[in-house]
């Protein structure tokens, strides 16, 4: 038994290993290099996008990485370089298109459940997340056909109780100490999701209203704002439907 342990210790000392060193930029670079298959990646920590205001706890790092002719937006969990991971950042971005329209989205709630209502708006695969608010969010979108998904779910909180144990040996006796911890965990409850398509005109402004009645019960309406001397008039949306 001593032999393998001695061999493992000697190997560890000769080869060398580091565990538990906190170097987020290094870890993220390593992860992204592995993911992009590129050995010369620059990374920058991106500021948190205003399109992502998640009421759920999210401690991932938003990263922009570029190298080998590629640019990638990724979200990384670098706490452990060996077990960490990055995934493509699907957060919405202002389109580079010259012809834009503005779509305002607002959720209406008959009653609220949980500590918050999480709204997720997906436009052609890119998502915008925010807690439900009284005012709408106005999203600049590329004019033309787009696929939309509105997803609204209550956020609930529960207390998670757990214990950790530490042991230490003094002489022949082993002492054990148990620590009790409480952590508040935020979770998503059942909500509703609705998908539709919209053909947006360049320069037009649309209002999308989600009426949330409860789990799996919601509907959506659309109107186009028309500016008149008397104020804003609402007209029907073009190409709105499922």
């Amino acid at each position: 038994m001593i032999g393998p342990i001695r061999f493992a210790c000697a190997a560890a000392l000769l080869v060398g290993c580091i565990r538990g060193e906190h170097r987020p930029a290094h870890d993220v670079r390593t992860l992204v290099e592995r993911q992009l298959g590129c050995g010369d990646v620059q990374v920058a920590f991106a500021p948190r996008s205003p399109y992502r205001d998640d009421p759920l706890t999210d401690d991932r790092i938003d990263v922009v990485a570029w190298g080998c002719g590629q640019v990638a937006r990724v979200r990384c969990t670098p706490s452990d370089p060996r077990g960490g991971w990055c995934e493509a950042d699907t957060t919405y971005e202002l389109p580079e298109s010259e012809s834009l329209a503005v779509v305002k989205v607002l959720g209406r709630y008959a009653r609220r459940e949980g500590v918050a209502q999480r709204e997720r708006i997906v436009v052609d695969g890119a998502e915008l997340v925010r807690p439900a608010r009284y005012e709408a969010v106005a999203i600049p979108v590329r004019a033309g056909h787009s696929r939309w998904t509105l997803d609204s779910r209550p956020v609930t909180e529960r207390e998670h109780h757990y214990t950790t144990t530490s042991r230490r040996r003094v002489g022949n006796r082993e002492y054990e100490t148990t620590y009790y911890h409480t952590r508040v965990v935020r979770e998503l409850a059942v909500g509703c999701e609705i998908a539709f398509a919209l053909d947006a005109y360049p320069g037009a402004t649309y209002r999308i209203e989600l009426d949330y009645h409860g789990p799996d019960r919601c509907d959506v309406r659309c109107a186009r704002e028309v500016a008149t001397p008397a104020g804003i008039r609402l007209a029907a949306c073009e190409g709105f439907g499922s």
């Binding site: 920058a44 996008s49 205003p50 570029w66 305002k104």
Partner: peptide, 18 residues
């Protein structure tokens, strides 16, 4: 409904590499 468009885009060239 009286809200301003939310305008944001990450420009990599404006960011300092870590």
């Amino acid at each position: 409904w009286n809200v301003a468009p939310l305008v944001y885009r990450v420009e990599p060239e404006a960011l300092t590499p870590r």
